[in-house]
Simulated scan of single mutants.
Amino acid sequence: MKQALLIVNLGSPDSYAVADVRRYLGEFLMDERVVDFSKWFRTFLVKGIILNTRPPKSAEAYKGIWWEEGSPLMVLSERLKEQVQAHSDMPVGLGMRYGNPSIHSAIQKLKEAHPDLETLHLIPLYPHYAMSSYETVVVKAREVVEAHFPDLELLVKGPFYDDERYLNILANSIKAALPEDYDYLLFSYHGVPERQIRHSDVSKAHCLRLDNCCAKDSPAQAFCYRHQTLATTEMVARQLDLKAGTYSTSFQSRLGPIKWLDPYTDKTIAELAQKGVKKLAVVCPAFVSDCLETIEEIGVEAREIFMENGGEDFTLIPCLNDQSDWAKLLADFGTELYAKKIETTA
């Protein structure tokens, strides 16, 4: 077998033990594309402050969502890999940007099983481009291949936030989980600092620099997380025939005093309840696998905020997880990467 498909997700601690959580957070937060300060300040902030205070609290949060089989993200990612393999003629591997199995070990496993491997099809499991998610996976994979597998060709799947097939699958999964009598649907995406949006702007003159920038065509939008998330919301809303005023977009998981993309999910949920929304549904399209940020941050914390402010019914829409149609699309992405290469080089 000369081709293989590698899907890469975020990652998870090996366990909810404080030491494992500290190790995981250290790798995650020391990534210069996640905490994009100078190395000396990032080291001071992460190793001098965060890793001395945050791991016990995070460990408790992980413990609260941990399944008998392990971390939900890891269990669901493994199930997804098996589903993708069932739809693919090429071997499928699974790697994590942080923690285990690493991207390096995943590629090594594929190479050992298939010594004649020549081409690796990489699919970061992120629909939208952000330097702290999609970009860091691609950069890390390229570094690993260049350093350890120089004879291996790497083909990379781009963000698929506007792929019609993906949108159909996402819309159908939302529709299947929506209560018939819900009042409002909130699309909650993982937040990023505004400075990262400006940093990714290839034009250096568009993103968050122009009024209503996301609605104005620009080469910057190919790398703009904010534009791509808003576009996903609107395209799915059209497929679901949602009426204006019954849905919106917000951003969760902000950290620290700096400006992050807004509106913020926690504040939005409180405001919706205060304005009379009684039955709220929330979907998190930035994540393809349920994890701490969906199960605990939205399913527990956001639910409490909604109820405390007058809400009555709260529904968390599951991520795509290991749905068969989603797995088949990933397998198709891998096949299309090679077909596009052949077309380009013919």
Rank of each mutant, 00 (worst) to 15 (best):
Ile123Tyr: 04
Ile123Pro: 01
Ile123His: 02
Pro124Cys: 02
Pro124Asp: 10
Pro124Gln: 07
Pro124Ile: 01
Pro124Phe: 00
Leu125Trp: 00
Leu125Met: 15
Leu125Arg: 00
Leu125Cys: 03
Leu125Gln: 01
Leu125Ala: 04
Tyr126Phe: 15
Tyr126Glu: 01
Tyr126Gln: 06
Tyr126Pro: 05
Tyr126Trp: 07
Tyr126Arg: 10
Pro127Met: 03
Pro127Gly: 02
Pro127Asn: 07
Pro127Lys: 00
Pro127Ile: 03
Pro127Cys: 02
His128Ile: 01
His128Tyr: 10
His128Trp: 10
His128Glu: 11
His128Lys: 08
Tyr129Leu: 02
Tyr129Val: 01
Tyr129Phe: 15
Tyr129Lys: 03
Tyr129Ala: 01
Ala130Asp: 05
Ala130Met: 08
Ala130Leu: 09
Ala130Phe: 03
Ala130Lys: 08
Ala130Gly: 13
Met131Asp: 13
Met131Trp: 05
Met131Leu: 12
Met131Arg: 15
Ser132Tyr: 05
Ser132Gly: 09
Ser132His: 08
Ser132Asp: 07
Ser132Lys: 07
Ser132Trp: 05
Ser132Glu: 08
Ser133Met: 03
Ser133Cys: 11
Ser133Ile: 00
Ser133Leu: 01
Ser133Tyr: 05
Tyr134Gly: 01
Tyr134Phe: 14
Glu135Ser: 12
Glu135Thr: 11
Glu135Pro: 06
Glu135Trp: 09
Glu135Phe: 13
Thr136Gln: 02
Thr136Met: 02
Thr136Glu: 02
Thr136Leu: 03
Thr136Arg: 00
Val137Trp: 00
Val137Ala: 02
Val137Pro: 00
Val137Asn: 00
Val137Met: 02
Val138Ser: 07
Val138Asp: 04
Val138Asn: 08
Val138Leu: 10
Val138Gly: 03
Val139Thr: 11
Val139Glu: 13
Val139Gly: 04
Val139Asp: 11
Val139Ser: 06
Lys140Ile: 02
Lys140Pro: 01
Lys140Arg: 09
Ala141Met: 08
Ala141His: 03
Ala141Tyr: 03
Ala141Pro: 08
Arg142Glu: 15
Arg142Asn: 15
Arg142Lys: 15
Arg142Asp: 09
Glu143Phe: 09
Glu143Asn: 11
Glu143Asp: 15
Glu143Trp: 09
Glu143Pro: 08
Glu143Tyr: 08
Val144Asp: 00
Val144Tyr: 00
Val144Phe: 00
Val145Asp: 14
Val145Trp: 14
Val145His: 13
Val145Ile: 15
Val145Tyr: 12
Glu146His: 11
Glu146Ala: 15
Glu146Gln: 14
Glu146Arg: 14
Glu146Tyr: 09
Glu146Ile: 06
Glu146Cys: 08
Ala147Met: 14
Ala147Gln: 15
Ala147Val: 08
Ala147Tyr: 13
Ala147Cys: 11
His148Asn: 14
His148Thr: 07
His148Val: 05
His148Met: 05
His148Gln: 13
His148Leu: 12
His148Ala: 13
Phe149Trp: 12
Phe149Ala: 06
Phe149Asn: 08
Phe149Ser: 06
Phe149Leu: 10
Phe149Glu: 13
Phe149Ile: 03
Phe149Gly: 05
Pro150Tyr: 07
Pro150Asp: 10
Pro150Phe: 04
Asp151Ser: 14
Asp151Thr: 14
Asp151Leu: 09
Asp151Met: 05
Asp151Val: 07
Leu152Thr: 12
Leu152Ile: 12
Leu152Trp: 14
Leu152Asn: 13
Leu152Asp: 14
Leu152Gln: 13
Leu152Met: 14
Glu153Gln: 14
Glu153Leu: 11
Glu153Ala: 11
